[in-house]
Write a protein that binds this DNA or RNA. Structure first.
Lengths: 202, 202
DNA sequence: ATGGATACTGACCAGTCAGTCAATACGGCT
DNA sequence: AGCCGTATTGACTGACTGGTCAGTATCCAT
């Protein structure tokens, strides 16, 4: 048996690509560097991915494929308080965001204009479904009188989700260059949940 | 007198560049396209900007130069309620965000990794100072007993600012590809202010 | 051991684009 | 009109990179 199988190679290349795409941007990343980072030769990525664009799509879809189903299950079957449900959703997002796949958020936002079909796919699979989770959690809380009544639930769900996405982007872009704030994950999520519940309680 | 003066050309080129950088990304934008969009020849940008990177920096600094001073004045001299002050800050951001210069937020976040010095400049000039405005507004409100006490003012200021930045990015990236939500500015800012004050009142 | 299949390599090609520069158009001045 | 200086052009070049492919290495079955 060989030490490395093709499946490993494909995902090694995809991981290296995600990493470089996130830090440098899609256009500024050379496939040769991807190959180097994955410790393979320049030609090998083309064996597993038809071209650079296909690699991009594969990276995105692979990264967001898994974690959403778990979250959806959680909302469906949760039986604690709605505050705890929101806490659970946020914890789920944090786990995703702090994994290597977390970088896709920044990547997608930066490259949506150049890859309309990837953007549409991401909207349908992640943006929309993710937002629905928050909408359902809010509705549940309002219905059970744990939260105050909310004028515009859909817009509020988006507003609630935005700091999460923004923090993910910020961590990977400006944060390394900002010497003044040392806002780490713990501090951010604590303040976020605090503010969130202050705004939602009756 | 000539119909067009050099100063016009420089800012025409900068405007066209900002537009294309925002929609396509820096690396994916050809200077030839910038020239075409500005209705000049390929060589002219190099008369006014040493190279592509200098053009990038000029675009950024020009775009964020103006609007922050006004906001700072507002916080210093405001004499209404702190809620109205926050409303004023948000309105100021909205005006900036909906101007052509609004695209820099997305641009910076996407390209920070490739232009560390621009990133640092932006952090110092915009990110940090902008955040300070919110911090001061929050402190003012707490001090005057218009807002509840806040555990971590600095983190809360960031969290408050994040939806604004994110909405700006989202509008220019995913929104055009998301057929399900029609979240326009009015609806977003209404829900945002609503949620904001629900979370801040004593 | 030999043949063949699969995994992988890296030199090479063709297209692209940042950046240059000799030539030109134009406006003002005398 | 004729000159001068400034603004502008666009063909060109050199470097770089996406993508190809002929060839090599490695393993397995017979």
């Amino acid at each position: 048996m060989r030490t490395r199988r093709p499946a490993d190679r494909a995902s090694e290349i995809a991981r290296a690509a995600l990493d470089l795409f996130v830090t440098r941007g899609f256009a500024a990343t050379k496939l040769e560097d991807v190959a180097k980072a994955a410790a393979v030769s320049k030609g090998l990525p083309y064996v597993y991915f038809k071209n650079k664009e296909e690699l991009f799509k594969a990276v995105i879809t692979e990264a967001i494929g898994g974690p959403l189903a778990d979250a959806s299950d959680m909302v469906d079957h949760f039986d604690g308080s709605s505050e705890d449900l929101l806490r659970g959703l946020v914890a789920g997002f944090r786990a995703f965001e702090e994994s290597p796949a977390g970088g896709v958020v920044k990547l997608i936002l930066a490259e949506a204009g150049n890859f309309p079909d990837v953007a549409r796919f991401f909207c349908a699979q992640f943006d929309r479904r993710g937002r629905d989770l928050f909408i359902r959690a809010l509705q549940r809380g309002v219905h059970r009188r744990e939260f105050r009544t909310i004028e515009d639930i859909e817009a509020t769900a988006i507003i609630i989700a935005q700091p999460l996405a923004m923090f993910s982007v910020w961590k990977r872009s400006l944060a390394p260059y900002d010497p003044t704030t040392l806002l780490d994950g713990d501090r951010f999520y604590t303040a976020y949940l605090d503010f969130l519940f202050k705004g939602l309680r009756p």
